[in-house]
């Protein structure tokens, strides 16, 4: 279970998160939507203290940290409750695929090397990379790299996996593969928080959708509620704009 209370974060006096309260149950898949700059990434990074909130309480599982007084030790403890999948994969470039997955198991979880290898190979099979175990990240496509990123997170068996736009750096034809991997692990009952611009994914996979704007959670509800009966004007306008754009986005992504 995840519990956030009064999370605030500013960058150089600019408030980016203005007091976020949130509760996520075990096994829930929560997607976060919102315009660029609304603080989605920052919120996700506050969950594992890659950004240290200026104020507020973060609880994941049985670890509770008051961010104002957070010590290094507490930050490490709460990081071990979660794992993250990054937009740009952030794989360890000098390690092979299987070593990337093993690293956290060996170093942070103190699993024996042999066991870590077995576990990692099993997880990599799940994401369809059994034939790439000994490749380096530079030898993989973006989609394959991201699946390694997912395997690295999954292998840790964390309370929650945090995804920050896991498909937005991918070529359009590779998005489907990665999304289907994420879908399949969502169905295993792993708690997930996913920041995404993939509306179909949010609609089909998540139990709950949050809409963020200007550092606050404007509205939350089931996909049905948010996509078909949003209460807030800001949410409706955002969704309208997104669906209007969606025809052009593949083109735009290619240009980028």
């Amino acid at each position: 279970m995840i519990y956030l209370q009064g999370i605030k974060k500013s960058f150089n006096q600019l408030p980016v998160l203005k007091g976020i309260n949130l509760k996520i149950e075990k096994g829930e898949v929560v997607t976060i939507l919102g315009p660029s700059g609304s603080g989605k990434t920052t919120l996700l990074r506050c969950l594992n203290f890659l950004e240290k909130p200026n104020a507020g309480i973060v609880q994941i599982g049985n670890i509770i940290v008051d961010s104002e007084k957070a010590t290094k030790k507490e930050m490490l403890a709460i990081r071990k409750q979660s794992a993250m999948v990054f937009q740009h994969y952030n794989l360890f470039a000098h390690k092979t695929v299987v070593e990337n997955v093993m690293e956290g198991l060996i170093v942070a979880k103190k699993v024996k090397k042999k066991d870590a290898r077995h576990q990692s190979e099993r997880v990599l099979e799940k994401v369809g990379l059994s034939d790439k175990l000994h490749h380096y990240p530079s030898q993989l496509s973006g989609g394959q790299q991201q699946r390694v990123g997912i395997a690295r997170a999954l292998a840790l068996n964390p309370e929650v996996i945090l995804f920050d736009e896991p498909t937005s750096a991918l070529d359009p034809e590779l998005v489907g593969d990665v999304l289907s991997v994420i879908k399949s692990i969502a169905q295993e009952g792993i708690t997930m928080v996913v920041v995404t611009h993939e509306m179909s994914f949010a609609r089909e996979v998540s139990n709950r959708v949050l809409f963020m704007d200007e550092g606050v959670i404007v509205e939350e509800g089931t996909p049905l509620e948010i996509f078909h009966a949003a209460k807030e004007e800001r949410t409706r306008r955002f969704l309208q704009r997104i669906s209007g754009e969606s025809f052009f986005t593949p083109l735009k992504e290619q240009v980028n």
Binding site: N48, S82, A83, N90, E103, V107
Partner: peptide, 8 residues
């Protein structure tokens, strides 16, 4: 950041 995220 990835190293931190896996608990290193």
């Amino acid at each position: 950041e990835a190293a931190f995220s896996v608990g290193m």
